[in-house]
Structures are given as structure tokens and as C-alpha cells.
Design a protein around this nucleic acid. Sequence first.
DNA 1: TTGCAATTCAAACACTTGTTTGATACAGTT
DNA 2: AACTGTATCAAACAAGTGTTTGAATTGCAA
Lengths: 235, 235
Amino acid sequence: MPNLTEETNGTQRRLLDAAVAIFAERGFRRTTVRAICEEADANIAAVNYHFGNKAALYDAAFDHARLRSNEDNPFVQMDEARNFHADKPADHRLYLFIRTMLEHQFRNGKPTDLTRLMTHEMMQPTAALDRLIEVSVRRVYTNLVKIILDLMPPGSPPTPGSSASGSTTTSKDRETAAHRYAMSVSAQCHFHHLALPMIQRLEPKQRYTPKALDDLANHIHRFTLAAVRGDNSPV
Amino acid sequence: MPNLTEETNGTQRRLLDAAVAIFAERGFRRTTVRAICEEADANIAAVNYHFGNKAALYDAAFDHARLRSNEDNPFVQMDEARNFHADKPADHRLYLFIRTMLEHQFRNGKPTDLTRLMTHEMMQPTAALDRLIEVSVRRVYTNLVKIILDLMPPGSPPTPGSSASGSTTTSKDRETAAHRYAMSVSAQCHFHHLALPMIQRLEPKQRYTPKALDDLANHIHRFTLAAVRGDNSPV
DNA sequence: TTGCAATTCAAACACTTGTTTGATACAGTT
DNA sequence: AACTGTATCAAACAAGTGTTTGAATTGCAA
């Protein structure tokens, strides 16, 4: 079994690249090992020789896509640096968060391979999803919650959930409110690739070029800021 | 070819019910006609006899799920009555919209079959998605845009997108802003079933019982209201 | 060169799965 | 009872697909 981490340009690397592309496009079930091998200019038996079987190749391809995505994407900074731009004010950190998230999801106007792979996992969760979440998504999400907590004015939230009559805002209330807000932000960031076919039909003019992503980030930023802070002042 | 619209409890009706359930759970590719026939207590040849082939059964099942969902769900009222609760104030209409949308997506704490089918279509669009959108989704979306337009204060939007220096807010600006808001609302409403496996891992306490859906609807309503109107006044 | 391990290859295998077939049973009509 | 169109059934078919196999090839070291 050869070294998987090395960046050889041999057949196993080509297999991984081809696997990422085709798994991302069609999902696990619809892709055939024959299609992958053809794309990678490799023999059909290469998959089993280098990875054991199709499922193991999928696993390796998923991680490969994650690592490859980290190479050329600022997302990794957000992931590993716990205090992402901690010096900037919270509202600006929120904008950077949203912008980075969107840029991470679209490339050349289309969803990235890793994004597509993750979206397929939403319909067909495997161990790869758990790994991705534990290794990356959870920290990003926690970071978002922190930004929002910094953003919330002292008095908030108005606590519609807790029907207790006491008007005091407990720390726990703030926490759960921040999580709700974080969910709303995540929803707005992820919706565009999760529901792309629907959006394309409802809003045919919607694009995901860098310029369009900038507009989108600005909108989500404003939208969220107004909701969390209770005002609508421009950035 | 027997009458498909009649509500016979014969094998073809049983096939449709079984097909909806299994297609919703596993998607088109992972479901086998054998599994459907077993669930429906029918012979394997029954699918081809009654529907021609697997794809045609899927199509029929999709429409069957849509019609069946309309039977016992207030969504159909929102769908067909163009002016959904037009007498109520806009903010209340927004709440009803969100609440109805969420109720339409979850039943017994789980995504409904039609919702699951639609989510699979996001990864694997077929003609069934086009039909669903043209017959139902587009009108609902248009309705949402109308509600939001009623909700927007006269001066809005602050137009971050149009970089033209003119400070006059054109009717076109309002329209595009309303569409962006509608996208944010849709995102918040659809996120919970589109990204369910991720949410379950990030927020394990999240539930979709009627009570939880009510809390969720209240949150989305407040969140949106604050963003669109630029205030945070309680309902 | 020789030997050896790693790799590649064409072919075949085993299994799943959508579809078809031809016979059989059923229900209603004449 | 005989006929007819509908429906069901067990069995088989044909194609696709993940996997295996055993030989051939390559790359490298002794």
C-alpha cells in the first residue's frame, strides 16, 4: 500500500482527482469506478489495488478534496486560527465570515467539488460527513456563534422562546439566541448551493461570480446585522 | 392503462404509496423496484404493467406525493388562494407564511415525504422538479415577495448593490431588494431539512415538534422583520 | 543481466437490478 | 358455458457494475 499523503502525480493521485470530480458531480451511487478510471487514464483494477474498494476510494477522495480545498482557500485560516481577525470589530468579522464562507462554496460561478460532496452527504450521510464536521465545520460554527455574541447588544434577546415571565436575560438565554442567529446566518450562506436548482428556476438572473458573491455577502451581512442588533445602519 | 386519478386501493395505489415512501427515503438511484413491490405486496412485474418503467413510477409517485400532501395541509390554500390572508397586516401574513412553510416540511418531527423527494431533486433534478415549481413553488415564492414588499418601509432599500450615486430609490431597486429578502426567508425556512444531518450534529438538541416549529417560526419571523423593517419591535 | 517487488492490464466473475415473457387466474359479458 | 380484456405471477433475460484474477510489464537494486 503506497503512501497516500505524498503528492505523487501517479495513478493514485489521478484516481483521487478524478474521483473527487465525478463523485462531486454525481454522488456515490451514480458514479461508476469505470468512469473514474477512464477519467484518470487508469485500469479498472487500479481502484481496488490502490484503495481496496469503491467506498474506501470515496472516503479518500472526500478527505483529498478537503485538504486540496484548504491549500488555496482562506477558509483554512478561519478554520485553524481560533480568533479569526479578532482585532477587527465584530460587525466586520461577521462580514468577513460570510464572505469567506460564500467564496469557499463557489468557484468560477459554480459550487466547488467539496461543497457538492458535502451536499450529497446531506442526502446520504456517511462517516465522511462526521469527519468533515469534527475537523472543520464545528470550529467554524463555534466561531460564528462567538461573533454573534459579540454583536448582540447587552439587553437582548427579547426571548420569545422562554415563556417564563421573568424579564431578566440570563446568560443561557443569550447563548441559545446566539445559536438561533447563527443558524439563520448559516442558512443564508448555505442555501444557495443546497437549493441551487430551485434558485436557478426562481431567480434565473442569480449569478455566483465574485462580484455577485460580494453583493450577496453584503446583503446577508446587512440582513443579519439589522436582525441581531436591531438597527439598520449601514456598515 | 387503468385510471390513475381514481383513488382505488388496488395494487397501483399501493405501489404509489410504497414508491413515495421509499423514493423519499433513499432517492431514485438507491431504491429498487423490488423493494417497492415488496413493500406494496405486489409482483415485480406490476411496476412495468401499471406504470411502464421505474422512471415513470417515480414521476407518478412524485405527483402523487404532491397531491396527497395538498389533501391534509394548509399549504394548498397558500398555493391556490392568490391573496393568502390578504386582510391581515403584512407582518402577520409573514408569520403565517413562515409557520405554514415549516409545518409543510415537517411531520411528526421528521421531514415529510414530499420534502425529502424535493431535497433529492436538488441533487438530481428531473422533470418532476420543474413540474413542482411551476405548479406550486413559484406562486408561493411570488406571494412571499408580495408580503415583503408590503412590509418594506417607503424609503428602503439602502441599495448597497447599485453603486450609482443617485440616492433615489427606484421601483426596480425595491423589487430586487424584496427578492433578496425573500431569498433570505426561504433560506431560513428550507435550511432545516436541506441540511438536517449537519444541523443534527451541530445542534443535537434541535427538534421539529409542533412546539419547536412554533419557536422556530417565531425566530425567523422576528429575524426577518427586523431586517426588512429595520426595527426590532415585538410582534 | 538477473531477481524481485510494485504496478498495470485484459479478461472474467459474481451479483444486482430493470425489464420482459408467457402462462395463469380473475371478472364481467354475451 | 364460452369469450374477452384485465391483472397477477414465477421465471428468465440482458445489461450494468463492483470486484477478482492471473499474467504481463515496469522500475529498481544487487
